[in-house]
């Protein structure tokens, strides 16, 4: 089954998730950041009637947050 195509792990038990796992983590942080802060921005938009500006700011902020998370979680050389 799919079990035998695991990349060889070199570290101990506290190993990072490898390969595809890291990719999914990175992508889900980016999309998650965008969605969460985009949604908060959208709420502000509905509240103050700004016509999409707050949503845009929220998306950019969330994207920045997502990038920071990816860099912190995956991009720090161990």
């Amino acid at each position: 089954m799919a079990g035998d195509q695991k990349p060889p792990s070199t570290g101990g038990p506290g190993d990072d998730p490898s390969g595809a796992g890291q990719g999914w983590t990175a992508l889900s942080y980016l999309i998650g950041g965008m969605l969460v802060w985009g949604f908060i921005g959208w709420l502000v938009d509905q509240w103050l009637d700004l016509g999409g500006i707050a949503t845009g700011i929220g998306v950019v902020l969330g994207m920045a947050g997502g990038i920071i998370l990816v860099v912190r979680r995956l991009g720090t050389p161990t």
């Binding site: 845009g56 990816v70 995956l74 991009g75």
Partner: peptide
């Protein structure tokens, strides 16, 4: 490979952000 992988994710995140921002702004406006 283990040494360069973190930089791969940094580069991937920063570049992929552009594509995702494109989707978002496409919908917003």
């Amino acid at each position: 490979s283990r040494m360069t992988l973190p930089y791969v994710w940094i580069g991937f995140a920063v570049i992929e952000a552009l594509a995702l921002l494109g989707i978002a702004f496409g919908f917003i406006w």
